[in-house]
Every structure is written in C-alpha cells, then in structure tokens.
Amino acid sequence: MTLRRARTLTGIYFTAMTVAVMWPGMVSVARIEPYVLGLPFGFFWNGAWIAVAVGVLYGLDRVERRYRTPSAPDSMGGGDGDAT
C-alpha cells in the first residue's frame, strides 16, 4: 500500500468514527439490543470503534515506517526520520 493511500484510509476511518460515536451517527445505534459480549449495543458500539482503531493505527504505522528514511535507527535520539 502507498503512503498516500494508507493515510487516506486512516483519515476515512477516524472521520467515520467521529461521526459514529456522537450525533448524528450514534442516534441510530442508541439502543439496548442486540447484546454483544453481554454489553448493550450502544456500549459495545463505542468499545468496538476503539478496538478496531488499534488495528488501523498499527497498519498505518507499518506503511509509514516503510516510507521513512532508513537512516533513523531507533536508538539514536537525534535521528529525525520525519518525512512529513
């Protein structure tokens, strides 16, 4: 995946999440049933967006690391491999 694409997809996910966890996105899921993992649906909905966010951020980081200048090893505090 290209860097541009990974960033766009991440942007889309977090924009969707911003809408989904508040008004107006949350209105349609503001209900108790169905229960998922024992949690009322509205509760599960919030938790699920966070859990998936971990995966999205991890995926983004894998792509970002590939595109960063290879001359910035972790242990060297001064290495500014920031391409942005």
């Binding site: 966070i50 951020l57 972790d74 290495g79």
Partner: peptide, 25 residues
C-alpha cells in the same frame, strides 16, 4: 520521549490502555 518512533508507538498503543474504561463502567 526518547525518539519519534517511541512517540508514534505510544499513540498507536494508547487505545489498548483506554479500553480499561470498559470494566470501570
């Protein structure tokens, strides 16, 4: 933070810490 990668990984892992709000609720 020691370096940029440390900062980035902190951001990536933060949601895993945040999930502890579920048992708190």
């Amino acid at each position: 933070a020691k370096d940029d990668d440390t900062l980035r990984r902190t951001v990536i892992l933060f949601p895993t810490f945040q999930l502890f709000l579920i048992p708190v609720f």
